[in-house]
Nucleic acid binder design. Structure first.
Lengths: 214, 214
DNA sequence: TTGAAATTCGAACGACTGTTTGACACGGGG
DNA sequence: CCCCGTGTCAAACAGTCGTTCGAATTTCAA
């Protein structure tokens, strides 16, 4: 099952993940990916049918990595109080600010998609459902009253997902002027705390808000 | 003072604003801009020194349009209760969702910059200060306690600015599956209400939070 | 009206993009 | 041994990009 060509495929997917996480799909070029993977340009078309096919494969592996992540595990998340589940959600999303590992690349990849809207990505979530989206949806439903309209749930879910990605996507907005922040682990912890408090208070207000049958 | 060439300059800036608002700076091409403006490609280099110079000019006109906007007028905003000032800030940012006028293009332009980080934009805010940024900063300071750290103020300001832009930037994320929302005026009003409530509750919690001298 | 400056124009340049081509190397079954 | 399918490779293709060039045109003061 492990053909010799799988090595080329895997290194291409790994390099593509790194490049797409840094620059997004459209700005990431085949030439840079193949250079990092030490593979030929034609290999992308040969193995994946083109740039979009390679990106589809990257998305599939990203989803797989998210699903086996313990932080978003649905059962343990359901057992936690909603504040703690929210805190973990936020902290997970902010990981790439300080670390630069494999997992942070996945987070960055999705952060790009939250703002760019690739055709590949739209087709992707049309068939398979994105774990981060359903996790956020479940989290929102734990806050909103049961009689909240589907539109409010949808809007609030979109809102929740975009909360951390504002900080994740572009670090230079934070480190450069006029903010001049330093992105060490201590800062990420403080940021996660502040962000969690802001979101929790906002959602809790929607939760407490009356609406006891019309 | 109104030389005949000013007509070319103005139509170029207007076309560039439309294109950059739709596609962002890097994806917007000189050829499309000059085609819409019915001008020659070389005119961009001649009048503005290049694509970046044209973009600088667009940013300048965008800032000017913001400054004469009554919604962000500092004096009237300071006279309003902070909840109402916040509500107007949010509503102003959500304008381009329903309407498609000149002002909405400026909002979209800044929404792009919140996520893309053009070099031109960084240099721009390094010299002249962006009105929307200072407005958001003032708004945040009305909520946070006086002894809040500069870092917390900065982080919260960045957070506030990014709240509406998540919805503004890409409409297809909202109208298409899996959300399928309709972006009429009534929806924008409901969204503005929901968003304002979420943000106000979050900020108010930070405000109420003790921290009465360490 | 004349002449110099300002402006416009079509065409081309060089650099980049994703994709395709045709030749080449390898490796096991007939 | 031969052959054929699987991969790999350098090179070229067609397209877009921002910019530049030189000539043609327009503008406007002398």
């Amino acid at each position: 099952m492990t053909r010799p060509s799988d090595l080329t495929r895997q290194s291409l997917v790994a390099a593509a993940l790194a490049v797409f996480a840094e620059k997004g799909f459209e700005a990431g070029s085949i030439r840079e990916i193949t250079r990092r993977a030490k593979a030929n340009q034609a290999a992308v078309t040969y193995h994946f049918g083109g740039k979009e096919g390679l990106y589809r494969e990257v998305l599939r592996s990203a989803v797989a990595a998210f699903e086996e992540s313990a932080l978003v595990d649905e059962e343990t998340a359901a057992a936690l109080p909603r504040e703690e589940a929210l805190a973990r959600f936020v902290r997970q999303q902010l990981v790439p600010l300080a670390k630069r590992d494999q997992f942070s690349r996945y987070v960055r990849l999705f952060a790009w998609e939250h703002v760019s809207g690739t055709k590949v990505f739209r087709d992707f979530i049309a068939t398979e459902n994105l774990p981060i989206l359903s996790v956020a949806g479940r989290l929102v439903r734990r806050y909103l009253p049961a009689d909240a309209s589907p539109e409010e749930v949808a809007v609030t879910t979109v809102w929740l997902i975009n909360q951390p990605s504002a900080f994740v996507r572009d670090s230079e907005h934070l480190t450069g002027p006029p903010l001049n922040l330093t992105l060490d682990q201590a800062f990420v912890d403080r940021l996660a705390g502040t962000l969690t408090a802001l979101i929790d208070a906002g959602l809790s207000a929607r939760s407490a808000r009356g609406a006891p049958a019309s």
